[in-house]
């Protein structure tokens, strides 16, 4: 039996906001197995972003336990978390978050810098990922010269360049029109078919339908966790 890629046990997260304590997560338990495609849904303030930050190892829990790739993140220091992020997780953001005035190739190579990969290999791997995204002729373009869809494809190439186990996408289509959204979701589905685990945070029900499983957050708890019955397949 393989161990789950993400395992949350009674996960809690509290923030102090001045005098008040905000309970962003109030005991969340769930597992994500390798190869899953999970959509995390919920209104703003439901705890889905907090949950995603935990899974992305950008933050550590204040209660319960979270295991990412079999490692408990709660006790890790910032360097260990950075290494875990670099090795295990690929991030895709709503606003793409590409470095301005930096070529697509160099943008994709950034995670490899922090992985300690040598320059020649960095370039080769970044180029291969961009070519796989159909951007082989845009290697030297800076983000300003690329369309939104192209920019998000560069960002996906960057997320995949370290060969992570989990692709963590936070509203990846939030800044894109529906045709381009479909194109991005097609890439996600293809990568998922190839075996990569995807955790997608979205508030759009239509986008969630591209996933295989849907988890719904409300008030810091999971209130629904089901397989997607009416799944969309991007063309």
């Amino acid at each position: 039996m393989t161990r789950p890629l993400v395992e949350a046990r009674d996960l809690a997260k509290d923030y102090r906001m001045g005098e008040e304590t905000v309970h962003a997560l109030r005991g969340v338990s769930c597992t994500v197995e390798s190869g899953e495609f999970v959509a995390i849904m919920g209104a703003s303030g439901s705890g889905k972003s907090t949950f995603m930050n935990m899974v992305g190892c950008l933050d550590v829990p204040s209660g319960g336990a979270l295991l990412v790739d079999g490692v408990e993140t709660g006790a890790m220091d910032s360097d260990a978390l950075a290494e875990l992020r670099n090795r295990t997780i690929g991030f895709v953001f709503q606003q793409f978050n590409l470095l301005a005035r930096t070529s697509a190739l160099d943008n994709v190579a950034v995670p490899l810098i922090y992985a300690g990969v040598r320059p020649g290999e960095r370039q080769a791997r970044a180029r291969a990922k961009l070519e796989a995204m159909g951007l082989g002729d845009r290697l030297d373009h800076s983000p300003a010269k690329l369309s939104g869809g192209q920019q998000q494809r560069v960002a996906i190439a960057r997320a995949l360049v370290t060969e992570p186990k989990i692709l963590l996408a936070d509203e990846p289509t939030g800044a894109l029109d529906s045709a381009t959204s479909d194109e991005i979701m097609r890439i996600f589905q293809q990568r998922n078919d190839e075996g990569i685990t995807i955790v997608l945070v979205t508030h759009e029900a239509d986008i969630a339908r591209y996933a295989r499983r849907r988890i719904l957050f409300r008030d810091g708890r999971i209130i629904d966790d089901e397989l997607v019955s009416d799944r969309l397949i991007a063309v």
Partner: peptide, 16 residues
């Protein structure tokens, strides 16, 4: 700041 956050997400350590 945003660039710093991004680099951290992509695996940059504090010393980087």
């Amino acid at each position: 700041t945003r660039e710093i956050g991004l680099r951290m997400a992509l695996g940059a350590k504090r010393r980087d």
